[in-house]
């Protein structure tokens, strides 16, 4: 609906992205750049869930399944084919196909939404267990050893397409930032397309949407697959910064991304990106302190937000700003809508 605002937001995102990818490598040490690439991949991961949960209203507890599949698919395909461009395609396609199969089962089985969360979580844990038990030489896909809980340490790094050079850490960082900006723009754009609005309709009232002729199940399946593809892309970047191991299917990975989205705010895209970056820094900080377990911080944050700020930081901030502005401006215009109240989701 609000096209100009969206263009401004996208422009801003591009500007910030451009500035970051040019300036940051100049001032930061190498490990800082590598870390930033990791954060960026996680931000994309957060966006994938922001799209699925925040925008489409489908709460998936096991988003890390798609992330992990993307990472593993990249590593295994890259080892087998030698060419990393094909591996990238695998990193996105494998999660999408997996999501299609799982989603078909979930959405066409008329399972209630609550079970969807539990089942997706279960699926992640199954993958965790399965991959953990693939230690030893007998477990391999083509040339790639899956390696059980040791993971795949010798993942080939990303190259320029068609047999080009290996990307340097800085180039990889630039690539990651470009991906992030593109994914963000994609999400914003998607929300405004007919498809996106139909998704919003299904989120608001599934039965009504169907009575108007929207195929709710297919729409949900489609957004589920899209979100899985984005998570796969995040996994691909992750596999290039940190080596893949089963912990990416673990519970804390699944919990983290959920926390980023809820802290950043449901229904927004910027919020989860910022939250993911800030919270990762916080986690690293507490990790360095050593005496406090990061799980304590994650847990406390999650509880605090669910209980006190359930709509997340960005919408809450917008609402407070709106209230203040209303106070300052025209007093007592009855029935005027405050931005960001319950039930309304603005997509920023």
């Amino acid at each position: 609906m609000n096209r100009p605002l969206m263009l401004v937001q996208i422009g801003l995102a591009m500007a910030v992205g451009l500035a970051t990818m040019v300036l940051f490598p100049l001032v930061a040490p190498l490990y800082g750049v590598i870390n930033a690439t990791l954060y960026t991949s996680m931000a994309i991961f957060a966006l994938s869930l922001a799209l699925l949960w925040g925008f489409a209203g489908i709460l998936c507890f096991g988003q890390s399944a798609f992330f992990g599949l993307g990472a593993y698919a990249y590593a295994i395909a890259a080892i087998n084919f030698g060419d990393t461009t094909i591996a990238c395609a695998f990193a996105i396609l494998v999660p999408v196909l997996f999501a299609a199969a799982l989603g078909y089962f979930l959405f066409y089985g008329r399972l209630s939404d609550v079970y969807l969360g539990v089942i997706t979580l279960t699926v992640t844990l199954i993958l965790f267990k399965l991959i953990n038990s693939t230690g030893g030489d007998s477990w391999r896909i083509g040339k790639a050893r899956i390696g059980g809980f040791n993971g795949i340490p010798d993942t080939p790094p990303l190259r320029v397409p068609f047999g080009g050079e290996i990307l340097s850490p800085t180039q990889l960082f630039v690539f990651a930032i470009i991906c992030l900006v593109v994914v963000y723009t994609f999400c914003k754009w998607l929300a405004l397309t007919r498809f996106g609005r139909a998704i919003a309709a299904v989120r608001e009232n599934e039965v009504r949407a169907e009575l108007l002729g929207y195929n709710a199940k297919r729409l949900k399946l489609a957004i589920f697959c899209i979100s899985a593809g984005l998570a796969g892309l995040a996994g691909l970047l992750f596999a290039n910064t940190v080596f893949v191991s089963p912990t990416i299917f673990g519970l804390s990975m699944a919990a983290q991304v959920l926390i980023w989205v809820i802290v950043g705010g449901l229904g927004t895209f910027v919020g989860p990106v910022v939250a993911s970056i800030v919270l990762q820094m916080v986690a690293v900080y507490f990790g360095k302190l050593g005496w406090i377990d990061p799980n304590i911080v994650l847990g406390a944050l999650l509880i605090a937000f669910v209980v006190f700020v359930p709509s997340g930081l960005l919408p809450t901030a917008t609402r407070i700003a709106g209230i203040l502005k209303n106070r300052a401006g025209s007093r007592g215009r009855a029935g005027q809508a405050l931005p960001g109240e319950v039930g309304e989701r603005q997509v920023s």
Partner: peptide
Amino acid sequence: LYGRMVDTMLATWGVSLLLIGLTTT
């Protein structure tokens, strides 16, 4: 949180992480 099923789920997940963290410490 009663009556907000999704929120209870999220909150108990928070409790779970908190307890893991505390016992590990």
